[in-house]
Design a protein around this nucleic acid. Sequence first.
DNA 1: AGCCGGTACCTAGCGTTACTATCTACCAGT
DNA 2: ACTGGTAGATAGTAACGCTAGGTACCGGCT
Lengths: 127, 127
Amino acid sequence: MPKQLTEMLKGTLEGVVLAVLAGRAAYGYEITTWLREQGFADIAEGTIYALLLRIEQRGLVDVEKRPSEKGPPRKVYSLNAQGGEYLDEFWRTWAFLTERLERLRSGQESEHAQQQESQGRQQEEGI
Amino acid sequence: MPKQLTEMLKGTLEGVVLAVLAGRAAYGYEITTWLREQGFADIAEGTIYALLLRIEQRGLVDVEKRPSEKGPPRKVYSLNAQGGEYLDEFWRTWAFLTERLERLRSGQESEHAQQQESQGRQQEEGI
DNA sequence: AGCCGGTACCTAGCGTTACTATCTACCAGT
DNA sequence: ACTGGTAGATAGTAACGCTAGGTACCGGCT
């Protein structure tokens, strides 16, 4: 995994997991394998477990322990109300970032119109 | 600034600065104020200077010292070939992440079609 | 002269995050 | 008895952005 992705995942991986849990309740091992299927080839298992403990201690998820047919009991996480709000906030922040980045990327190919100073530019709200 | 953005910036801020430098040579103070105008309301000055030192030591940028009319001399950074490659890699990684996130977000509103296991799903290359 | 604000750069210490590596535990098949 | 898959946890490390300062140069004001 390129180091760039590792750094980019900081902050977003949490949102990813919360988004998964918004869709359906799940346990750590399940989430890890699902992420691998989604192309996040080698996200460390330990990372997910640590993340789940974090969001549990912050009260963003509810936990239920369920026995497994083939292994130790599972800790099934589900998003609660507070986690839902936090996830909404995450998506807003993510949208903010992607807008800025998209503008940067598209503004890079066509190089012009930037010597006329910073006037007349629509100034969106900052965060 | 929400803490979420702080974490998300890890990894991406570097790409942002490199992208700016790909457009035109610039110095730290200039980049900081420009970022503020772009909506990154309160990115710490120190963060930018530390970041510039980092990418300088990695050989991604060339540096030229130029006197300023109203202050200490400026350190003007410009992207070099190696930095260009690194920036390309950054955009690829960014595209990878945004694709996965976009899929997650849009898949959340319409909740269905995910109980039919992970077969027949086009498996894109992971990173 | 003294002071302040703007310009311009730098640094030490801190908190948060993901990764590495390793450990425990349960069960099925060989 | 051993291996492999399932399931969870943790100590230590590296990287990054932030906080909170500091230095230095210059012009205008009192």
